[in-house]
Write a protein that binds this DNA or RNA. Sequence first.
DNA 1: CGCCGATAGCTAAGATGCATAGCCTCCTGG
DNA 2: CCAGGAGGCTATGCATCTTAGCTATCGGCG
Lengths: 207, 207
Amino acid sequence: MSKMPRVGLSSDAVVDVAIELVDDVGLDALTLAAVAVRVGVAAPSLYKHIDGLGELRRLIAVRSMSELADRLTAAVLGRSHDDALRQLMLAYRTYALEHPNRYAALPQHPVSDPDLATAGTRVVDVILAVLGAYQLDGPEAIHAARSIRAAAHGFAALQTAGGFQLAEDTDASYELLIHMVIAGLLHIRGSVHLDRQERSASTGADE
Amino acid sequence: MSKMPRVGLSSDAVVDVAIELVDDVGLDALTLAAVAVRVGVAAPSLYKHIDGLGELRRLIAVRSMSELADRLTAAVLGRSHDDALRQLMLAYRTYALEHPNRYAALPQHPVSDPDLATAGTRVVDVILAVLGAYQLDGPEAIHAARSIRAAAHGFAALQTAGGFQLAEDTDASYELLIHMVIAGLLHIRGSVHLDRQERSASTGADE
DNA sequence: CGCCGATAGCTAAGATGCATAGCCTCCTGG
DNA sequence: CCAGGAGGCTATGCATCTTAGCTATCGGCG
């Protein structure tokens, strides 16, 4: 009877299980003890792979932000202008709704982490790439990217937190927000009023 | 020598101290032990006034949401249209920046709490009142209010979490977001109408 | 004025959970 | 084959929440 089976763990595997756990039972239930049970080792053994609970939380945030960046990148591939922007914002919310607990883990470990900052930069870069098609760059692009991120994150955060109590369709609300963002971008470029012909310059998917 | 001095506590007083503590040292440091030290009693004594740590967190969230509603109400007093909307959004972010830890406590205890829902309703009502001046009501107003809340919350959350790494002025970014929201309201009826037609034409799958 | 019950404090103790220390076994490379 | 590191374990200490049960204080009522 072999007494110490060598599970064959790794830092990534521990994070995998931890994310599963978060998705299943929520952020608050993320405990080293629970993770240990799931991977089938004693709690202190986890320290051979990760440096404590704080580190684990950090790794979960980095992983999630990175996944989000991947989703956004895939969503805008082969698209541009309003079409790209709309798909980007839709993909953003979709990710949050598919993994609400994981998404809630993001804002917890904000600053001071280079890896998380790197993953965050990837998100911002996708947005900036989309804005390039609007002839936006420099400080204006930064301001616009922040606004887009704020809109997407705010909506996703509020909805996943159950912040929209009323019966109205949240999809319709989000479509309105997307249109607001697009209208705002046109405003930056100087065309204050929204013109249907301008908007249909991109492929007809949007209308 | 009187051995049990009767500090003269109350539920509200405990919450006061707890919020102070959160502001000072952060959400993670909110512990019954630390609160007990600040108010000058032993930890178990707190249970005479609040029902455990969960209840305390809940009360902090309710208090903060209520304060936020007060601020927003004050900000729009005697104003209307774009002026009111701009001041409302500015007041929203100002509150978050003044009390970042308190604000971070809000999204933690989201659902299932009637008191928090009531305070949240007050926030929404202020926004809806502002939208009334735009001749908006009914479902359209709900969609617009959600978008405004999402924009303000998203920006505040990202900024307080240190999410804006680049050097560009965040005030300018926020002014842009405000302009985007205002510009979006100008076109709301057409946008929402289009949304409905789009949605009823397709099966509405989210991805 | 004194008592008496409710209230608000206390200490003690149990349950979890994080983290460190130190040991033991398995596997691999030489 | 055998040496040593890597990956597992148990034991332990500490912080925290929470419950249980005791005691002192205070305000109202006889």
